[in-house]
Computed example of a mutant assay.
Amino acid sequence: MTLLILLLAYIVRRALDSADRLDPDSFWIRCTRAGSRRAPGKRWQRTTGVALLAIPALGLIALNHWLRDSSWSVMIYPLDFLILMLLLGAPGWSGRLAAYGEAWRRGDMNAAWHHVKSCLRERERGSATAPESLHLALSNRFMATVFERYFLIMFWYVVGGIGVAFLVRGTLALRDHWPQRSARPAFGAVVSVLAWLPARLLSLSFGVAGDLAGWLSEGRRSVFSPAANHEKVLMTAANGALTGYALDPVRFARIHPEDWMNFGGLSLAAIRNLLNRSMLVWICALALLVIAGILR
């Protein structure tokens, strides 16, 4: 049932993302406003955030165990599906990426930057002035967002259940939206720990779903680099697994100058296809675990 719930939640969530509906961030932003009152110190700020997250997560774990041992055990499945569907998702990207690709095709890089500037980190908005820098920064953010909002949550749902998945998604929200900015790096460090193994599994998936030879020559090094963060691991692996220099704008412009105006759209389409194929690899791997009796 775990695989079935995962598939249903993924399909429904992808449909909602395409329609740009039910943004989970709005819920998490409202939840983190409880910490907007200034706390006396950084330790207290972090403790408040952990408490706001841990209490409902522990409640979900306890509810799941109670249902499993009660006559209402069948309710576990719709509950897991509903919560998982609400935890997943990154709406808003489809429209922004389409507008970005169209602006790139017209050669209007100022418009392209304005379409996606809200997706970039604050420190990247000023430095991403050259087309190459802008595109690499956007590709990095898009890939990291899809990893965190889908692959990371799904991995921990399979490993630990819906309570752990809620904990992981809540930690992402604390890192991104906690009102006291000084406390956010601590939550970011926790995310890095949680993402260490799933990011390397996704990197391996890139090799299976993409150009294996290119991945072996470039991307595999990041898998065996214990200190590399998940964003660097994914970008390095994707660059090796993608053909046609989809993540190397400088070489693409030198080798295919006649197609430079289409590079933005072509590159993003290649990244999206690689992520979709990698998700299929994960689903097939989970199906094999079900067949082997390891996953129920």
Rank of each mutant, 00 (worst) to 15 (best):
L3S: 02
L3K: 02
L8D: 01
L8P: 06
A9L: 04
Y10I: 08
I11A: 14
V12Q: 09
R13Q: 07
R13E: 02
D17V: 01
R21L: 15
D23Y: 06
W28P: 06
W28R: 04
C31T: 08
R33Y: 10
A34K: 08
G49Q: 06
V50P: 07
V50F: 14
P56Q: 04
L60N: 01
L60D: 01
A62R: 03
W66M: 12
S70T: 01
S73F: 14
V74W: 15
I76G: 05
D80W: 12
D80N: 14
F81M: 11
L82Y: 09
L86A: 14
L87F: 00
P91N: 04
S94V: 10
Y100Q: 07
Y100P: 09
W104K: 00
R105E: 14
R105M: 10
H115N: 13
V116E: 07
S118Q: 11
E122S: 14
R123T: 12
A128M: 04
A130G: 11
S133V: 13
L134M: 10
L136Y: 04
A137N: 11
L138A: 09
S139N: 07
A144K: 02
T145N: 10
V146D: 11
F147E: 01
I153S: 00
I153T: 00
M154H: 03
W156T: 01
Y157I: 00
Y157E: 02
G163L: 05
V168F: 07
T171L: 15
T171F: 11
L174Y: 08
R175E: 15
H177C: 10
A183Q: 02
A183P: 08
A186V: 09
L194R: 02
A195R: 01
W196C: 08
W196P: 03
L197Q: 01
L202N: 03
L202P: 10
G207I: 03
L212K: 10
E218D: 10
R220L: 12
R221D: 15
S222H: 06
V223M: 11
A227W: 13
A227E: 14
K232Y: 11
V233T: 13
L234D: 02
Y245F: 15
Y245H: 14
L247W: 09
V250F: 12
I255C: 08
D259Y: 10
M261L: 12
M261K: 14
F263Q: 01
G265F: 03
L266G: 07
A270C: 05
N276F: 13
C284Y: 11
I291V: 15
A292T: 02
G293L: 07
I294V: 15
L295V: 05
